[in-house]
């Protein structure tokens, strides 16, 4: 059963399941220990390496080996972890487990354009104003009228010496916003890449003071990016295409990596995201089987009461009109054939001498006859007339 259609075959909104979008993805760390090798870390020795791949490997939580940065001895002590999700996801949460005391300041960023631009999702710091120029988030987690990156209290060390950064996209998003109906919230949760900025280690003293710093390294494991592959309500799963790119398995006449547009022939109404109440499936143009392409016309769509705006292009089989629903000039509808029949339109075949033109009545097929001429194609003289030798007046009254 396809979750995007009900038992009767009618389309309905569908979304991919919640997954860890970072699982198996490459993590780029700005600093990783072991190059050059030290006694504790050697990137070339699998038994003593602490690569960033450990952050997103399956079963990472069970591993006792963590990613570890180089020993940082100079200010600034910034280290970034960046993971490309491969396509747009709608985030639910981001978490990172630290193997040592969690940093005193962490910034969480997202990109929606595969790493070209970055925007903050949230911050964790004991000194929000100092580190990020922001006030501390209200205790109830609420922010302004729209979603915004809030600065939350610093991550706390756990009894085992580690710590957990757990960020929910609801943090920073005002309650009551509905993903279906809020484009602002849809934008807020959408990301193609996640970046975690570790900006201040959990060491005593002022980390802006060079002399106060003791060598320090960040250490973490199990980066999780919980979210749903973004398909705008038009797919229930994502797949790898022939080039290895992650794409939505689009339904409802949609296409694109995120099902973000209508397929070429499915443009009878504008593309819209599916909601719980309305599927907004893209509809095929109504061309009676005589056209393969169509375009959307907003003016016609408005005039139709938001029902149909598709205009068929290149109507074949001698048909014409917005829906290829009538015959081209010089052809008429054969009443014995259905409108979708390839031979629904017959040539007028008006007589070159008896007819006054080449265009017949599109319904009856009657050609316009010269005086005294009769017949569907104007090929006979009427009663009381006889053929003359003049092609201008082919039939004259019988004397």
């Amino acid at each position: 059963a396809d979750p995007c259609y009900d038992e009767g075959g009618a389309p309905r909104g569908c979304v991919p399941g919640l997954v860890n979008a970072a699982l198996g993805r490459e993590v780029l760390a700005s600093s990783t220990c072991g190059q050059p090798a030290t006694r504790a870390c050697d990137a070339s020795d699998p038994l003593r390496a602490h690569p960033a791949t450990l952050l997103t490997v399956a079963g990472g939580s069970a591993s006792s080996v963590c990613w570890r940065s180089d020993m940082l001895q100079r200010v600034p002590l910034n280290v970034t972890l960046t993971v490309a999700l491969g396509k747009a996801f709608e985030l639910v949460f981001v978490s990172l487990r630290f193997c040592s005391a969690p940093p005193a300041s962490v910034a969480l960023l997202k990109s929606q354009d595969h790493g070209r631009n970055w925007a903050p999702l949230g911050f964790f710091s004991s000194h929000c104003a100092l580190d990020y120029g922001r006030p501390h988030a209200p205790l109830d987690g609420s922010g302004g009228p729209g979603p915004e990156a809030l600065c939350f209290p610093a991550l706390q060390a756990q009894p085992d010496g580690g710590g957990l950064m757990a960020f929910s996209v609801q943090d920073g998003s005002p309650p009551g916003l509905d993903l279906d109906s809020s484009p602002v919230l849809q934008d807020w949760v959408t990301a193609t890449d996640i970046r975690i900025l570790l900006t201040r280690p959990a060491v005593p003293g002022d980390t802006r003071d060079l002399d106060a710093i003791v060598p320090y390294s960040y250490s973490a494991t199990e980066l999780q990016v919980g979210g749903r592959c973004k398909c705008n309500g038009h797919a229930s799963r994502c797949l790898l295409d022939a080039q290895g790119h992650l794409i939505c398995d689009c339904r409802h006449g949609t296409e694109g990596p995120d099902c973000g547009r209508c397929k070429p022939f499915y443009c009878d109404r504008p593309w819209q995201r599916a909601t719980a109440r309305e599927t907004h499936a893209c509809l095929a143009c109504s061309c009676n089987g005589h056209a393969r392409r169509c375009r959307f016309n907003m003016e016609l769509y408005r005039l139709s009461g938001h029902r149909s705006g598709g205009v068929c292009l290149n109507c074949r089989h001698n048909t014409a009109g917005r829906h290829c629903h009538y015959c081209q000039e010089g052809f008429y509808r054969d009443p014995d054939r259905s409108l979708s029949d390839r031979r629904a339109c017959r040539a007028c075949d008006c007589h070159p001498v008896g007819a006054a033109g080449k265009t017949c009545n599109q319904t009856t097929g009657q050609c316009p006859c010269k005086d005294g001429v009769t017949g569907l194609t104007c090929n006979r003289c009427a009663l009381g007339f006889q053929q003359s030798r003049s092609p201008v007046a082919p039939c004259v009254k019988t004397p």
Partner: peptide, 23 residues
């Protein structure tokens, strides 16, 4: 009564050469 179809061979195109249909 059904009249015969127009006989193209009977028409005189002398003065209407430009109107003569291609056969």
């Amino acid at each position: 009564e059904v009249m015969p179809t127009l006989d193209m061979a009977l028409f005189d195109w002398t003065d209407y050469e430009d109107l003569k249909p291609e056969v």
